[in-house]
Amino acid sequence: MEALLSQFTFLSDQSLQDKNFDPSTIEDLMKLFEIESYKAWAAAELEQEKEVEEAEDAMQEAEERLESAMESAMDEFRRFEEELERMSKAEMESLVETAESARRMGNLMEKSASIASKKYIEAALNSATASMKSAWKGISSGKVHPS
């Protein structure tokens, strides 16, 4: 393009100095300017298309990376959720087992207390019966002690 501008300057100067200058020479040069402009426009358009394609490729790569990162994060979340669920289940089972042991222990203690209570009542009745029999024997044998 600079060569054409230089040529245009040269022809402009020549047209001012030479009375026999042919104006079609400048027209031919203007056609070369037009051709050169189209070439520059086509090159700029190609460069723009290339940049658009590179931007689309970069965008696609970024989307793929984001998708991969999201998939990894979701996988990690699922593993965390499964581990948390497993731990919760194990803790719940442990609590249920502890509660069941406490219930069995309570039942056993209730039975033991019931048996001990019955034995205490039997012993008290036996003691009272023995005291009554002893007192009755004392009364029937005539050995009443004055009070």
Rank of each mutant, 00 (worst) to 15 (best):
Q14D: 02
K89P: 00
D13A: 13
L5V: 06
E45V: 12
S88D: 05
S12R: 01
I115H: 10
P146G: 07
I115D: 08
M74R: 15
A69F: 03
G106S: 13
E85I: 02
A123S: 14
W136H: 08
L5W: 09
L46V: 14
E91K: 07
P146F: 14
M59L: 15
A124E: 06
E47R: 08
S131H: 12
K31G: 07
L4E: 00
Y38C: 14
L95N: 12
L32Q: 03
E47M: 04
Q17W: 05
L66N: 07
D13E: 01
K31A: 10
A58N: 02
S117E: 05
G106K: 11
A99M: 11
I139K: 05
A44S: 14
V52H: 11
K19F: 11
K111T: 06
L32C: 02
A43M: 09
R86E: 00
A102Y: 13
E71N: 12
L95Y: 05
L108R: 12
T129F: 15
K50E: 07
A3P: 04
Y120R: 15
S94D: 12
M70D: 04
A44C: 07
M59T: 10
K133N: 15
F10P: 02
E71S: 14
T25D: 01
M74G: 06
A55K: 06
S127P: 03
K118C: 09
L5Q: 09
N126T: 08
L11I: 05
E36Y: 03
F21K: 00
A43E: 02
V96G: 03
E54F: 08
M59Y: 09
A135Q: 04
R104T: 05
S37N: 14
S15I: 00
A113L: 12
E47S: 11
A69K: 03
E91F: 11
S131C: 08
D75F: 07
S72E: 14
E51G: 04
E97W: 06
E51S: 10
S72T: 10
S72F: 03
K119W: 06
M30H: 07
Q14F: 10
D13T: 12
Q48S: 10
A135S: 12
K89M: 09
A90Y: 01
A3E: 03
K50V: 08
E51R: 11
S147D: 13
M109E: 02
F10Q: 10
P23Q: 01
D57A: 15
L32R: 11
A62P: 01
A40G: 07
L11G: 00
S117K: 02
Y38A: 15
A128Y: 05
R104N: 04
E81L: 13
P146D: 05
F21R: 00
A99L: 14
M92A: 15
K19G: 06
R104I: 06
M59C: 11
E122T: 09
E110R: 14
E93N: 13
I115S: 09
L125D: 06
M30S: 06
F33W: 03
A99C: 09
K50N: 12
Q48D: 07
A90V: 00
L4M: 04
A73M: 03
D57T: 04
E67T: 09
E63F: 03
L46Q: 11
R103K: 03
K89W: 06
E34P: 01
E34V: 07
R65C: 08
S6K: 15
V144E: 04
A58W: 04
